[in-house]
Design a binder for these strands. Sequence first.
RNA 1: GCAUCCGUAGCUCAAUGGAUAGAGCAUCGGUCUUCGGAACCGAGGGUUGGGGGUUCGAGUCCCUCCGGAUGCACCA
Length: 660
Amino acid sequence: MNFLAELRGRLRTALTELIPSDVMTDVGPYAEMLKPTQDPKFGDFQANCAMSLGKLLKKPPRDVATDIVARLKLDDLCDAPEIAGPGFINLKLRTDRLATEAVALIHDDRLGVVAVPTPRTFVVDYSSPNVAKPMHVGHLRSTVIGQALDRVLRFLGHRVYSDNHVGDWGTQFGMIIYGYKHFRNEAAYQTAPVAELARLYRLVNQLSDYHEAVKTATALDAAVRLAETALSEAQRQLAANPKDKDAPKAVKKQEAVVAEAKAAVNSARKKREAIDNDPALQTLAAAHPQIAELARQETAKLHAGDVDNVALWKAFIPQCLAALESMYQRFGVKFDLTLGESFYNPMLTGIVDDLKSRGLARESDGATCVFVEGNAAPFIVQKADGAFTYATTDLATIRYRIETLHADTALYVVDARQGEHFQLLFATAKAMGLGQLESRHVSFGTILGDDRRPFKTRAGDTVGLESLLDEAIARARAIVDENDDGKKDGPELDTATRADVAEIVGIGGVIYADLHHNRDSDYIFSWDKMLAKTGDTATYIQYAYARVRGIFARNNIDADALRQAGGTILLNTPAERQMALQLLRFSEALSDVVVDYRPNLLTQYLYDTANSFATFYEQCPILKEPDATVRNSRLLLCDLTARVLKTGLNLLGIRVAEKM
RNA sequence: GCAUCCGUAGCUCAAUGGAUAGAGCAUCGGUCUUCGGAACCGAGGGUUGGGGGUUCGAGUCCCUCCGGAUGCACCA
């Protein structure tokens, strides 16, 4: 049972009785004001509606509270409600009811989580890397948050399509095709095709950047001089008018412009030097002066259906997808659909025609654009050269999700930086009659390094996801080894088990560290914090699980037999009561996650559960307990704790180990 | 210039318009000759960037200023 939902239902009934329907037709929002307390001294739940209702009904809030309490039928669930302060109604669940509900969990595979009565069809669109490039740390949050939401929605009984909207059709393919045609190392391609394709992509990119850097060198220098002139002018203004409030601001701003211009010059210089210092690259650069333009033409040819390029593309794609798949296996992620950009290609002309015929799109500077009210930037659906953009693809995707998948809600688990794009996308979709799909940008912040700049390797390169996980596992392994070697009765894990535990702890740590932050915030990446044995980490929770399982294993207690044998649960101490209550709130935690798509509410719940367990475990003897009924009750609580922790962690994509 | 997000303990972060703003780390101090130690309990630490406003009640909503991040026409 979800106590919160049940209590709100009861409150709703009472409010409907109390308030005449001509005063208020929907008491729902007031019933929602029943919430868990933040402090146990106020009980388990509190209803906060009497204060605002007092205003509305022109009665003292405490009188309203009294009226509500008189109509609330809660005898079977709660002790007598208490009215406190200005009109808070404090509720405390009956301990005997907690005990019977806890017993009900023992035989419930779903641990008290009732499937939603009206399932919706969700598309969860996440991860979405470019298939031509290896995944990097920039794909971590989308993958991790997306899969957690995916699993939680499913567990709650919704229909879910997880969809990996991969980039398999964009300009990067022109670059790869160009690279393949001119620079391919056939032997390397045969043995490790994806690595070779990635090399070709980087090479073509590097050569294009080189020519661009050479071409723009004078312009970049000029921009610096211009910015410096503007800066000295701003400084002169400041000196002349020290009282001008805006003058210091202008100086600061110009300083930023100068810094930015210099950074651009530096970055261009680095790109030139990389080639200039390498004779082999120099030769290549000289031989391919038009490389950027020619690569673009390869993309255009691919899109136009050129036989050779399409054949190459068809050869590349399965290889690229297989490489991604091995990454997803490490995370335990499975997609129902992998409908990339190329899938929607045949629908794009229709989208643009539709927009034109509805009078929504028009020409501007040669491009076909939708101008959305209140937004200065256009939503470009077709470029001047005739190519479509990701805006067009995204519109086609929405139409497909409505017409073919019959989706009710689409979640886009994508970087916050694309907020404007989604605003324009959703507004345009609505304008063209695709508003029935509830679309939601589930945005998230950036992962930062110690320096508060986006997380990079020491050399300044982006961090590959593969190596990130490898390092997490290696660090976890060192901890596992140290711990196991230090055990009082000698090591207990063999090499294979240690490797297994290291992987579970390492990857779990990475996932948990990401999910336990509010997704809106940027966060600073820290190996030490993520794998710490104490504190709010996956390891701590995984260890709580292993402790429970250890009791059963070491004493040859069979959990299944224990459940089958039944028995009662006794909640005679505060720690036991708190433990049972916490376990019974699992359902509430999962519902909370889905309200605003925030997995951190589940990490918080699991950490609290592990903490409640630590207290219970400390205060309540289990095997030493002489009374067989109490002992059995405590074992049942232990078993339930293990199941909730395991199920909860699994919903976040984190595995558990029986021994650590 | 316009837009979005952020500013909370020394540090890293939570907080669904509710009562005395919470965790973890770090610091300091306790408990335990363990059924089970990668243990547990406690303390100190805050004008929630500043100032206005709405509200019975604001870290949360609105306005404004300060400070930071990000994005803004043919890459996705």
